[in-house]
Design a binder for these strands. Structure first.
Lengths: 215, 215
DNA sequence: TAGATTGTTAATCGATTAACAATC
DNA sequence: TAGATTGTTAATCGATTAACAATC
């Protein structure tokens, strides 16, 4: 069952498909055509069929796609059928906010521990998960079968913490620090650069204003 | 000075250029070639020159780019030379975390108010900014010259709040709610779908594991 | 069977890379 | 002037869209 290389452009659309299919399922919709789904998502039917077909033929000619089946299959493709144990490194405002966010748990992402270097934060609890000192990091990862580390520390510390992480069994880093991490292949990194996102917003505000001026 | 349509692919790279140039500036580097910058950013020199040239000729043949000048110019392109007043709607964990994040202020994004429908949260303060009831939303936006609304409320309420927002003078919505917003052109939307991001991470973990199995 | 809609191949479009003349 | 490096045009690559045969 060799899987051809899937472009990240396709991967980026999968969670959105998954979300819409979930909503359709909740609405009780049983089947949907690529045409209809495309209208909802504002994509071409062709693109949707291409995307889905990267992973296999989940539809049926003359019928379309079974909503629940496609939902489940995309869930599996996204790896949501497994449990992922994660830790949060950086128990500041953002780290605690993410720790409190229950929806991740619903998708199989379980918060197992939090870490911080600030002695003032150590011992605090977020949803019964205690904040631990950085010294315990490696042992904790090993003993608790941690897959994912969420980095919510200032950029200054992020690079060196990432270096510690890649020496462990960790499989992925969800990086909120405003710095690009260099990791060996085999460790996945997903960046959430909030300031970059805000700057894009700012760019688009300015661009629209200039467009208006011109006319 | 007609500006041709710039693709969002280019726009997405600008904040990263801006960040690296800022670091170079801080290091005291005066000039840099597209070649060198490309090596740092892991992009081709050609792409960097193309990207920059969308906005004008900021370099000099035989010399390269002046770091400080390019930094400033990209800052202007991103609209960081103006102040933006913003509000946060949804004073839960995430809203408060964003409200506490000081770096936005450094870039000219000023938190002016927070809103929530939960009476228990109203009156609380985040960095001297008080949480207000949703009823005051429209008046507050008008009276305080608000540009940007940050949406950190659950998806259930997000669509209707967005509908209220687009009737005001608001220019942009930074949307953290897990739902796609439909807004008229003229209102910019930037989505931060954290669960989508986490699912991409999960996909890549799974993909890598399968690759390993195969060999 | 006829109609609908997928799966898949071919055509188009856009973004990235390469090449090189212009010029500092 | 010679060397370096941009700005810009041309070539390539990849992603999206269109078309249509396969088939339920």
């Amino acid at each position: 069952m060799e899987e051809k290389e899937i472009s990240q452009a396709v991967v980026s659309r999968l969670p959105r498909y998954f979300r819409y299919l979930g909503e359709l399922k909740d609405e009780g919709v049983e089947r949907i055509s690529s045409q209809e789904l495309g209208e909802r998502l504002n994509l071409t039917a062709s693109q949707i069929r291409q995307d889905i077909n990267c992973f296999g033929g989940f539809g049926q000619q003359g019928y379309g796609y079974n909503v629940e089946y496609l939902y489940d299959e995309i869930g599996k493709i996204l790896g949501l059928d497994r449990k992922h144990n994660f830790i949060i490194i950086g128990a500041g405002n953002l780290g605690r906010a993410l720790g409190n966010y229950m929806n991740f748990e619903r998708r199989g992402f379980i918060l197992r521990g939090m870490f911080d270097q600030d002695p003032g934060l150590i011992g605090r609890e977020v949803r019964e998960v205690r904040v631990r000192p950085m010294e315990e990091l490696e042992d904790f990862i090993r003993e608790n079968d941690i897959d994912i580390a969420v980095l919510t520390i200032p950029k200054a510390g992020a690079v060196s913490v990432a270096e510690r992480l890649v020496k462990t069994q960790i499989r992925a880093i969800w990086n909120f620090a405003h710095v690009d991490l260099n990791v060996p292949e085999g460790v996945q990194v997903e960046n959430v650069h909030l300031s970059d996102s805000l700057m894009k917003l700012s760019y688009n505000i300015r661009r629209y204003m200039k467009e208006q001026e011109e006319t």
